[in-house]
Design a protein around this nucleic acid. Structure first.
Lengths: 234, 234
DNA sequence: AATGCGTGTAAAAAAGCTGTAAAAATTGTC
DNA sequence: GACAATTTTTACAGCTTTTTTACACGCATT
């Protein structure tokens, strides 16, 4: 996913600005998904798992501040706010609610692109803060290349399997609750579906463990969640 | 914990803005260190290890862009750029060089503070979680990883066993009454079931103590409750 | 010595959680 | 529009944990 284009969700109701962003950002190698309302925006963020969100503060119905709060309940995706309002209070409120940057219309596309790069740089730093390659026993996961190997054998993972494994690696050694995993992998509307985690954990074990009935990497913490074994830092 | 003040290095040659920042930021609980040139700024950053840097782009001698590049060779401390220049190219150059934000003078102090909070929030996310390991004799509990070891041996605890031990650790050295423990572990509807505490305390002793009939860690305070031994000074 | 109280063990029954398989629905691709 | 891959739904067997139940111990008081 890192070698591919960065994915951006744009939440904006003004069709003119939408068109402007679409052409500018596509020309600069981003994949865009658009939403015209706050609700739709939340759905897009949950399903597309974007690398960045561009949010207009002046939305009908569910307003921009509410969107920021909702997203921050489960995701740390960078959010850049666009607004016609240049009042100090709007800026402060949005930034303190969890937005990462705030641009006042009219803005220049060059500056927007530069600020997008800053935000994505931040997120990347957080991602591979540990390292881009996770190793534990025979298991090796190259997060930059999206490559998983057991011993010398390369293993193919489906998108969800890979996201699940990534989430565990980001918290290697720590227990992740079912809820945390569901939020991270499936999004906030799935927090009830504990079964999914079990099913996919089983599939990961089939693919990664020598003996899936006696796992060495993907450990169950009954009643709590799962943990990826991590010999470092004991 | 955020009990300590955040440290900010300000690199700025205009004495008027210096004074303005000094009063505003001190009033908001930051420790300030000032530098009037780029070289001096680099020294301050290296020695003070600040949580944030505020940098004026229009410096004499070593200019702002050069400072950003130099700092980014070895540090990822957040840098907020101030500038009288509002040209798009300056912004883009500074941001792409590694700055985290860019404000054009004149700026409002409220917005600056909000953007400082954003940057420090980012940096905090990057830092690893706090020291959360309880140690006493052979017993070791890593609260962040939910990992319990006795000597070299890892011990598996059920959810309730772990919650009980956590509650005792949070009050290490002090007596906790049956009532307190029941409230903490089982919730307010279970306050009558004194028995549960005894049963689970017994199970914890079986798992953690060398001789469960003569406990070293999980001590009974007859008629009152239980206490976790704690040799460290309070 | 017997009683009552607080305490510690053990082992059942009940409740809840986990792992697997496989069918049905969905998605993406040509 | 058909095909392959993947995700979601469904069902069930097996296991772990919690709760319930029963009983033994020590110790101070009667």
């Amino acid at each position: 996913m890192d070698t591919l284009k960065s994915i951006i969700v744009v939440i904006e109701d003004d069709p003119q600005i939408c068109r402007f962003l679409r052409t500018s950002l596509n020309a600069n190698g981003f994949s865009l998904f658009e939403a015209n309302t706050g609700e739709q925006g939340l759905v897009e963020i949950a399903t597309r798992k974007p690398d960045l969100v561009i949010l207009d503060l002046g939305l009908p119905r569910l307003d921009g501040f509410a969107v920021i709060h909702k997203v921050r309940e489960w995701s740390s995706v960078p959010i850049i706010v666009l607004s016609a309002r240049s009042q100090e209070l709007d800026k402060i409120t949005a930034l303190d609610a969890g937005a990462d940057d705030y641009l006042t219309k009219p803005f220049s596309i060059g500056e927007l692109l530069a600020r997008i790069r800053v935000s994505i740089r931040h997120a990347a730093q957080f991602k591979d803060s540990t390292e881009t390659v996770f190793c534990e026993g025979e298991l090796r996961v190259d997060l930059a290349r999206r490559l998983v190997t057991v011993g010398t054998h390369e293993v193919h993972l489906t998108p969800i399997e890979y996201r699940l494994l990534s989430a565990l690696i980001r918290h290697a050694g720590k227990v992740m609750t079912h809820r945390q995993l569901l939020l991270n992998v499936w999004g906030p509307t799935y927090v009830e579906h504990d079964h999914y985690v079990r099913i996919y954990m089983g599939q990961l074990r089939q693919k990664l463990e020598a003996d899936s009935t006696q796992p060495r990497y993907l450990l169950t913490e009954t009643g709590v969640g799962y943990r990826l074994a991590c010999s470092e830092g004991l």
